[in-house]
Design a protein around this nucleic acid. Structure first.
Lengths: 115, 115
DNA sequence: AAACTATATACTTGATAAGGAATATAGATT
DNA sequence: AATCTATATTCCTTATCAAGTATATAGTTT
């Protein structure tokens, strides 16, 4: 059952943060590193985990790997991402991530256009 | 973070089935056994798991243990249960469970009133 | 109190996951 | 081709979980 694969992805804080940030748009690994303040291995492995289960898509852009939410998410995924959005509003971790993302936005835009 | 405890509960099919059935009302272990066709240990342990994490409440009624969704679920739990409801509609396992529940309803009512 | 019923707990085994350290790969730059 | 940068993979250790078997507990009936 696909639904369970989704929930498996959602029961880790790092992955929740990644997904939550991705609802704002595509991003590459190094920016996630900066945003979450976590080591590269950790980010990379969690993104691989998400990718394997179809919660995330990736494409190469020179040296960068750009990760994004699926272009056409399943109903189940869409529903759960919406639910996460809803729930995340209550927690500081997520709010802080978005704040940092906003601050970093100009620099990210400068680095190169995603997509 | 409470949210993660919730997702941890949701990434097992047996627990999803239990929760989904519970959205219809309280039930005791032996009825779950009949509905899911799973051994007592399995049901009991998964219910304990859910209970520890606050997804489910229990009270004794003679020999029976009646399990129910929390009287006042957190916003997060409520949101996720709603989402589960939404997603479960697509899967036969869940539909079959509800069908079986309907069939068993009279007998359950006869056994003794829950709540 | 002895037997019975419904449920819970302890123990064991195999599987999966998380995090860190080190290393490998792909592409870009010099 | 040598080096650099961004990212992925491998190996290791530790922790958690699922499922089954056996056993314990709480409450009920005889």
């Amino acid at each position: 059952m696909n639904l369970i694969r989704i929930y498996e992805c959602l029961c880790d804080l790092t992955r929740l943060r990644l997904l939550h940030i991705l609802t704002q748009g595509p991003l590459c690994v190094c920016h996630f590193q900066a945003l979450l303040g976590e080591p590269q291995v950790k980010i990379s492995k969690h993104l691989a985990y998400l990718r394997q289960r179809g919660l995330v898509e990736a494409k190469r852009e020179g040296n960068w790997m750009i990760y994004a939410l699926p272009a056409k998410p399943s109903r189940e995924l869409a529903a759960n991402l919406a639910c996460l959005q809803d729930c995340a509003g209550e927690h500081d971790v997520f709010k802080r991530d978005l704040a940092r993302l906003k601050k970093l936005a100009p620099q990210i835009a400068a680095d190169g256009p995603p997509g």
